[in-house]
Amino acid sequence: MSTEVTTTPPSTELSRTLAACRAEGRAALVGYLPVGYPTVDDSIAAMVALVESGCDVVEVGIPYTDPVLDGPTIQDASVVALAGGVRVADAFRAVRAVAEAGAPAVIMSYYNLVLRHGVDAFAADLAAAGGWGLITPDLIPDEAGAWLAAADQHGLDPIFLVAPSTTEQRMAATTAACRGFVYVTSVMGVTGARTTVGGRAHDTIDRARAATDLPLAVGLGVSTREQAAEVAAYADGVIVGSALVKALGEGEDALRALTRELAAGVREGRRAEHGEGPQA
């Protein structure tokens, strides 16, 4: 058995952003949208709208033909985006637009797109666009030697996922490979709105806390203000994807409205923790 040592993780701009939210007594709102949906220009405008409506961090998703960790909403949006001719380079444009709007941007991408671009070239282009990190849903640190080296080289944060099924040993190793924050998947399953986020998120957060001092952001299943508040009670960041994609499908006004609701939610969770319960 290895002894578990919690080392102080490196402080980066991204981790400081989440820590600042925590200092305000709230969780950060992390919003995901895929570039190219419904068109490249509209998706970039929508990401800027996320920033203007209260998102603290924007995850720029790159549509992929074979997204094994995504549910129907993001799959369908990816099909639309790919049919519209979206390219990997468009994601860097989106990152720049988010950065110029004043929020941290990270990319979320399946690994083959990074590999094909060239791992180092991808990191260089992401950093040049003003991006802060990369979330890799199908890349574990064990396989990430090239990406970790490129992230160091270009000052980017590697963000890996942990899950309810992650063993203690892997929890320690995986969180140690992260910078910025750790992406905690709340449930065993794919992206998409759920009626409940589930007790396993809390349990997984507890196990991650025991392994690292990095901020922890919870993703998968959050779609409403109430759920955002519930998760904000124990997480440092609340990640919302499919619900925002659905709202964008209805139009930018719906997207802005939902983002404001979620931004209110992440501010209510901490009060809930102190017994001022706003939850329905």
């Binding site: 094994v68 690994y111 199908d138 574990i140 996922l161 899950a163 309810p164 099924s165 992650t166 998947t185």
Partner: peptide, 13 residues
């Protein structure tokens, strides 16, 4: 190699 979501790693092991 093993390019899959972390959630599956325990099952693969």
């Amino acid at each position: 190699g093993r390019y899959v979501p972390e959630a599956l790693i325990a099952a693969l092991e």
